[in-house]
Amino acid sequence: MKNHTDVLIVSQNEVPSFGYLCRSVTNSSDGRRELEVRAAPSRKRSGMEIFMNEFSRRHPAVLFLYYLLVLFLTMFAVHPAALAASFGGAFLFYLAENGVKTAMKDLAYYCGVFLLLAVLNPIFSHNGETVLFFMNDRPVTMEAILYGAAMAAMIVSVIFWCKCYQTVLTTDKVLYLFGKTVPRLSLVLSMSLRFFPLLKEQAGRIGKAQKAMGMYAKDSLTDRLLFHVRLFDSLLTWMLENAVETADSMKARGYGLKGRSHFSLFRFEKRDGTLLGAMGILTLGTGAAAIGGMYRFHYYPGISAMQTGLWAVASDLLLVLLFLLPFLIDVKEKILWKISLR
């Protein structure tokens, strides 16, 4: 049953395939962000439970905290070392999660994004004292270029963290975290997720049925647009009718009674505590280093000199450790696993 419905959709292009991987449109020449259209790597392994890397197995609350921390630090970072650490951590983690091939492909793509963003900054910003050349009678400064590069690094790092985020903090974990605070909202969210595969299957069936009636079967753009509008129409009716039955089944099982409880499979274990502790110590350390001025850095009017000395190296190391936590945990587990197999 499963096989056969699943493949209905994967099959041919002429039937409205939900283009999960719409890898098209990245016309960023206008400076506008079209990155959004780029798809997340598909981790679905037909029906099997998604394989989880070690880091992802930690308690959702700890994972969520870690993400808040990392995003916060990355976005406030100006220091090149911090940005490099953040990008390195995000990329290595992405590599551990998705394998070398995907990671390299994405790296190449985001190198382009990085360059583009880095080049755009000096066009708008003419601060800085080291003028390299003039363009349209406006000075282009080295500081602006470097600053642009730093900002681009920041954005690319955030994007990589977000890409990992999707595989680490899956929706069921997010729902677990917020289920108690906003129960109705999380119900809407989880039902939507549930409806999605249903919709996909039905879209495939409707597409076939309509095609076999010979309706809007030509290849012209208007026919295709109208076909999709019909498909959408039919899907909506179908969804609405079935949703009422879902609501009935919820009511039949007592949804809406007072004092709902929240069940989950997640348990806070010792290793979660350890991770939390490590995060705490590293955060305190970086905090102290920040107050001590170890991460002070500026681009304008001139690039500040890199700080040297033992303390500077130590505080940079703290950051590196913090950003590398997920990667290290994944790798450690992989090595231990290999050893235990021997």
Partner: peptide, 22 residues
């Protein structure tokens, strides 16, 4: 409950719309 479920349908359809008209 029915209203909530129907809202979930509309969310799903909005997402589906973004995908169908890819």
């Amino acid at each position: 409950t029915r209203r909530t479920v129907i809202l979930a349908v509309m969310v799903t359809m909005a997402v589906a719309g973004r995908l169908i008209f890819g």
